[in-house]
Write a protein that binds this DNA or RNA. Structure first.
Lengths: 193, 193
DNA sequence: TCAATTTCTTGATTCAAATCATTGGGACCT
DNA sequence: AGGTCCCAATGATTTGAATCAAGAAATTGA
């Protein structure tokens, strides 16, 4: 049931059987159908989720009501509106299933208990959030310093699975482009082979 | 000497005298003159710094050689190329003093020792990096969802000190705009009062 | 104090991407 | 099969910001 979750932690720190049991006792499970929301803007994000199966997208809405995708998540990835989760404030992000999903959830009380009781869990979280920060920083750097063509090539290289599983107009949204522009970028790239 | 550093930690966790002494023993001090670099692209980032006094900018260089400012740092803020620091890879960021600066440094060996020996230091770091992640996420969200005018107003509200201490064209660079465009935005805003 | 640099503003032109509009191809229904 | 919906590709037009250019204002430094 929680193999993906535990193996993710064990990649960073080695848990004993006891610790594994303690952690699993604080997890819950959830399934989502395609198009169901894990989180909607305005609600408080009560859980951080780890994707055991499926695909989801995170998006925000701008002042004109347009959606902008800020992240995708596939198997093994974590998601949630961290700001809303930690401060128990209304979320600004929406998280929607793009396929039927299996999620593994941890609530705020569970999160805090584990941080306190299991030092390795705190270490794991420090490492996880540090890596997320580095990845986000890298993404912003790429958006600044690469041409749209280069950016798309980089995206296809780093996330080939997403390209296969997600409609193209959503990748355009993620890249901050109109669907038409991404379409033209693709044809431009394939011309120069 | 290290008051700013310790008070930053004590905001999040309460250190004993012993712990404070242990931490201070692992810190070093550095001064920078205006226009000196704390870090240059290609070098390995050997230290994370906390600004005790002064102002700095972090920037990256794109394929055409243009600079893009990704962050400013004033008193009490931390900086460094985290990716380069942790993985001991060449940095992609440049960090330059905008004023004469006093920095408080922590090396990688010191960082790892403290993480291990002082659990509160790990907790502090987890909280710090989590807040940095949330702030970076908020910034990307603003860049996506706000008009340049709104973005500038928000920037002035959140960082009035930076606006006072940093040339306008650098703020334009931070916002991803040309200096001319930011100038026009300012006149547009002041017209509508 | 005066020259040199840096910084900011304003105007004219150019350009890349958004928008608007149309078409064609699948996929999924009954 | 036929119809509806969704998605991608392509063309025409518009638009907002970058670029190019020049000059004014402010800082800096000898």
């Amino acid at each position: 049931m929680y193999e993906v979750f535990l193996s993710k932690i064990n990649e960073k720190v080695s848990l004993t059987r006891q610790e594994e049991a303690e952690i699993v006792a604080h997890l819950t499970h959830k399934t989502l159908r395609k198009r169901q929301f894990f989180l909607q803007e305005g609600d408080i994000c009560r859980y951080i989720a780890l994707v055991e199966k499926g695909a989801l997208r995170t998006y925000v809405t701008d002042m004109e009501g347009h959606e902008h995708i800020t992240a995708f998540a596939l198997e093994g990835w974590s998601l949630g509106d961290l700001c809303s989760f930690l401060r128990e404030e209304p979320a600004t992000q929406n998280i929607e299933a793009l396929e039927d999903c299996e999620l593994c959830l941890i609530s705020k009380p569970a999160y805090e208990t584990l941080l306190q009781k299991i030092p390795k869990y705190e270490t794991y979280n420090r490492i996880l959030i540090t890596e997320a920060y580095i990845a986000l920083q890298k993404r912003t750097r790429d958006m600044i310093s690469l041409s749209p063509d280069e950016q798309y090539k980089a995206f296809v290289n780093v996330y080939p699975n997403i390209v296969l599983r997600v409609p193209q107009h959503m990748i355009a949204s993620y890249m901050g482009l109109s669907p038409e522009t991404l379409s033209r970028i693709k044809s431009r790239i394939s011309q120069h082979k």
